[in-house]
Amino acid sequence: MKLSGLIIALGIALLSLALTSINATVTLTNTFTNSYSIYIPGTAIGTLQLSQNATNITTYLLVIHNGEREFVKLPATLYLSPGNWTLMPYNETYYQIVNKVENVTEKTNCGNVTVQKVIKVSVENVTNKLTSPVIVKVNIYRMYLVRDPGLIEVIGISTLIIGIALFVVERFHS
């Protein structure tokens, strides 16, 4: 049995794995109010889009990625790098219009009269519990087949060269 053919074939296979990637975009959509975790392998290239439907809310998320912590204000787009991503609400700020009863002194012919009036007031609320769910869109634009295409390419080319050299030697000997 000649080894050269097998080694050449394996070299071609490795090279094709290194040079090929899945380019169809895959979008994974999720929502959360408590927390969200996703593991991104070293082969995936993409973004993490964070948003909320409510426009009057300002939400800050705590993003933990491979042990590093970062605060992000929504809406935000993060470039994915390999590892574990955990998203947790940090705080949510929103303004609420509330009715407030106020004593208003009005001047009348009879003198000053104090009356009570209902007026609308905007109040800033801060909470660490989300009232509106966060929409997470994981967009994977490219999925490499191997973690380190460069290394596999080098291994593939080397295997190919070894196979060709062996083929020449085998031909010479037969």
Partner: peptide, 15 residues
């Protein structure tokens, strides 16, 4: 020569 590389490459479905 046919089987081993095909088996290796056919794993792209895993990704």
């Amino acid at each position: 020569e046919l089987v081993l590389p095909t088996m290796l490459v056919a794993n792209i479905f895993l990704n």
